[in-house]
Amino acid sequence: MQATTGEKIAFRLRWLRRRPSLVLGAVLVGFIVLMAILAPWLAPADPYQQNLMQALLPPSADHWMGTDAFGRDVFSRILYGARLSLLEVALGVGIAVMTGVPLGLVAGTIGGRTDHVIMWLMDVLFAFPGIVLAILIVSILGPTLINMLIAIAIFSIPIYARLTRNLTLGLKQLEYVQAARALGAGRLRIMFDHILRNALGPIIVQATLTAGTVVLTAASLSFLGLGAQPPTPEWGAMMSDGRNFLGVALWVSFFPGLAVTISVLGFNILGDGLRDLLDPRS
């Protein structure tokens, strides 16, 4: 049966309408991505240009979101900050996934003592409250954006290791995986070819949800003075600097706070939508 183009589009629209979280999440995250890409064209001012005589001006036609304590344009800094937030998400989630997933795969596939040791390590890491571990790590490595991301990634590793291991254990029992083994495929190949491909869905869902956590934890660490260093227009650092003017110049922290909330909201909603899509059971 041939479907016309119109029917196809209508079908897709209907499909999307039944998944409002997916659409809303994608729109919000897409909005942040657009900000990041278009920052140089949209920003009315250089995000680093100070003008101390114009410090802490309220929002106006010249400065839509006011100026900060150094007379920099808050709106321009928020636009450029979107780039940093996306970088944080990519790196923070990336490191956690790249470390946690292989560990879980190895533990689940090989089993035995290897499994015990890896899972013991993961339990130890998981026992640390995330912020406490991050405080320790950043205090040791020094407060930079990258070190902060390493810290955030480290406490997310156990989540991916456990998730992947459990998925692996489940998939190992499946007929076709066992069939592949019977056909003489090597253990490594089975791991990557079958298990990983099938476990990808839940991992992507989890990664989207972790993205929100990364942005929020980054803000908390900035609050504790352990985040990005000045003059980086990082949203968490901007909120954290701006909080010292609360009650007098709310805009300095309000707009970065709004940006953080919107982006975390976007990732959380998108994660929900993806879960509904990829895991029909829940």
């Binding site: 240009q49 100070q50 150094f70 000045p230």
Partner: peptide, 14 residues
């Protein structure tokens, strides 16, 4: 130190 950090940031700009 943290409380004087704004001075450093301003000098960085100047």
């Amino acid at each position: 130190q943290e409380p004087e950090a704004p001075i450093a940031e301003a000098l960085q700009g100047m």
